[in-house]
Amino acid sequence: MKRIYVNEQWCLGCHLCEYECAFANSGETDMVKALKGKKMGTDLLPRIRVEDAEDGSHFAVNCRHCTDPRCVNSCISGALSRDEEGMVVIDRDKCVGCFTCILVCPYGAIMPSGGKPVQKCMLCTDNAAGEPNCVKHCPNNAIVYEER
C-alpha cells in the first residue's frame, strides 16, 4: 500500500507539516481561522511531529501503518484495526481512551486528541484534504506518499 515516508536527508525542520496536518484535521476551510491564536502542543495536536536533533538533523514522524501493529494488537476495545489495504484505522466511536496504544507505539505516532478517543494519522482519508496534506505542502519533497 501507499504509505507516507520521510526522507530525512531533505527534511528542513520547518514544521510546516505539523500546521498543515492540524489545519487539515480542523474541519475549517481557512487556515487562519483554524489555527490563529492556538499553541502547538497544547491547543494544536497534529498527527505528525517533527523531531529536531541536536546535530541539526530533522525527521517528521507519523503512523507507519505497521504490518504487525502493536497498537492494534493491544487495543482492548477493538477500536483499532487494519483495513484490507493495510492501513491502520481507528474507529473513534469505539475508543474508550485507555491509552494502551499510546504506550505501546514505538514511534509515538498515536496521541491524545484532547477528548476521550485517541488520534492517529489516517492519511487524510477522514478529512476534506483528499490527499495527505503534509505531503502536499512539504516544500522540499521530504515527506512523500508512495508505494515502496
Binding site: L12, G13, L16, K36, G37, M40
Partner: peptide, 8 residues
C-alpha cells in the same frame, strides 16, 4: 498564526 516557519 505564529507557526515560526519564517524564523526557522
Amino acid at each position: 498564526i505564529a507557526c515560526r516557519v519564517c524564523e526557522r
